[in-house]
Design a protein around this nucleic acid. Structure first.
Lengths: 148, 148
DNA sequence: TTGCTCCTCACGTCACGTGAGGTGGC
DNA sequence: TTGCTCCTCACGTCACGTGAGGTGGC
């Protein structure tokens, strides 16, 4: 018997550890965003690996923090699958020019996501600054009141 | 003729300047989140003020940046209405003890929102840090490749 | 064998999008 | 008066929530 490569999770534990619900996981599978429980006879339980958990967590974070739709998440998954194909190609020891090209594409992908996150962080920081300003003015007045 | 206190906007311009659609504005009115076009005969056009625009913009920012539901936004509006009542009381020159209490409540409200925003900013920053880390490792490898 | 958790429909809900057909105001 | 933009239904859609009734695995 070969040693199990990864611990297997059922849908309830996967969902809980990812901070979501089984219904959401099934829905993501239904629309083709996740492939749930590979090679499963219909009616049987879905099983997932730790890698599935990591991927689901990342998708949920991008969705929550950037407000992406599930269609947009699909594009991200497609881009990641393309990158996985590039990594496979990488291991086949391609010529140096091709190696640099693969790395360049990976870099592009990450930089696009970083740009979105930076914008979002600036938006949050801007709103924070406005509220901090209001707070400062209230504290000023409280100090005046307290001084009287 | 008395000078108009504020410029009046129709729903299309209000929506566009707030970065949303007329349908959304009507829906918010329908569920009681906005009171659209005060004292309007049914079938007549809704009109809005600059103050309405500011409020709508703030609600949309909170919704987008914090992922709040419309029910949660209603609570925020209710809290703001309560604060408006306190401001009215403020102008009636209440006794000092009451003045400090009013300021204290305003401060609480702002600090709760600031806490939510700080958490959200940290989440975004954490994901950014992870991606920046990946980027650094790819750049390292690119430098190695370039050096060969 | 007993309890969980899981399964598959399938209808409900939230937050709007999208016409359909008609009226209002610069 | 001609064009916009607006109006009110009302059905559609996206991303799930929530039972209903039934089977699977430690």
């Amino acid at each position: 018997v070969p040693a199990p490569a990864t611990v297997h999770l059922r849908i309830g534990e996967l969902a809980e550890r990812a901070g979501t619900t089984p219904r959401t996981v099934r829905y993501y599978e239904e629309i083709g965003l996740l492939d749930g429980g590979r090679d499963r006879d219909p009616g049987r339980h879905r099983t997932y690996t730790e890698a599935d958990l990591d991927r689901l967590r990342e998708l949920l974070r991008l969705k929550e923090l950037l407000g992406l739709s599930l269609e947009e998440l699909k594009e991200i998954v497609a881009a990641e699958d393309a990158r996985a194909a590039l990594r496979a190609e990488w291991h086949a020891a391609p010529p140096p020019r091709r190696r640099r090209q693969i790395l360049g594409e990976a870099l592009d992908h990450i930089e696009r996501q970083l740009a979105l996150l930076a914008r979002r962080r600036e938006q949050v920081a801007a709103l924070e600054a406005e509220l901090a300003d209001r707070r400062a003015r209230i504290e000023e007045r409280l100090a005046e009141e307290g001084g009287v």
